[in-house]
Design a protein around this nucleic acid. Sequence first.
DNA 1: AATCTAACATACATGGCGTATGTCTTAGTG
DNA 2: CACTAAGACATACGCCATGTATGTTAGATT
Lengths: 194, 194
Amino acid sequence: MNKRTEKMAETRAKLIQAARQAFAEKGYAEASMDDLTSKVNLTRGALYHNFGNKLGLLAAVVDQLDSEMAIKAQMKAEAVENEWESFLMEGIAYIEMALVPEIQRIVLLDGPAFLGDPSQWPSQSSCLQLTIAKVQHLIDTNILKEVDVEATSRLVSGAALNAALWVAASATPEEVLPKAIEAFKTLCSGLVKS
Amino acid sequence: MNKRTEKMAETRAKLIQAARQAFAEKGYAEASMDDLTSKVNLTRGALYHNFGNKLGLLAAVVDQLDSEMAIKAQMKAEAVENEWESFLMEGIAYIEMALVPEIQRIVLLDGPAFLGDPSQWPSQSSCLQLTIAKVQHLIDTNILKEVDVEATSRLVSGAALNAALWVAASATPEEVLPKAIEAFKTLCSGLVKS
DNA sequence: AATCTAACATACATGGCGTATGTCTTAGTG
DNA sequence: CACTAAGACATACGCCATGTATGTTAGATT
């Protein structure tokens, strides 16, 4: 049982890739499963066998994107020495990633609408978990006020994502992005111990 | 041409009301237009005549809810003397309203997913406009730092809405709500001039 | 009063999802 | 090395929902 699992993993990957493209372009609701499967020379049969239904495919796609986002954000954050600056950099990384149409459309818009609250997702939203860990650490090291960890994390990530939606919808994203980042920093400064 | 427009306004109201209920219960995608129209003794004919298509109906519903939200938030905010406290109260009001399933599902989840970014809606999102005006005023009166108005407003409202999503998804909303409010206040404190 | 407009209902066409069934390849077994 | 069992995927079908095209009737216009 080697050649079979190998091939199955390949078709799963193909379907997820096709779905990423289709969902990003047309949105989850308008994406046809016949279309996206045939683009990788498969049929809906493969899809239902591997993912159960259309929502299962969306969940798989969201999971993959979420993981990729968390990795990138962590890398960007780790590149900064200062702990507080590192925290801010993570948030800024989310804002910037949320500008990518694929992420915005699938993870930020369709994801919550069709899969429910991100914290309830199977992946548990790696991004959110990452932020929670970081906030906890900053509280432990006496940098942040003693706020509620989960609540603060949700507020911060929510602010970042919403800022990104605004930037992306604007006519001149390149011009407003720095403003969003600046406002984000200012807002977050309310969390630091004085 | 009086009795006709009168009756048409009535059917529009009936359809919007039915849609509010259907969208809130099943979500926009899963709501059947045959079902919701027949619940008020109409057919899809009335719907397409009045709203063009299913998205048109959603837009009308969102517009109505958004207006109601803005009014409520303003009332709550006006009840507070201190300008800064009043601003916070507005945000808190949004958090609390976002706990109402109807608002959460339709305005916060399905709205952005199917209609796009709220700032591009026909209603232009009264809630957002309200926050923008308030932020501008607080900057003018030298209470807030000189941040970018739009960016800050988006961040603040985004934080509030995301906090609400978290509260609503939690097992014990009554217990987490105060935490969310507290965290919101702390976060916003970063905006005040020191 | 006659006609015309428009609000709404009815009927039809299209397409998508989900499931049930079929087929073929691969892994295991004597 | 056949033979069988199972799983991965394709094919075929039914159902339902949206959107549109066509009717029908009530009310406005003259």
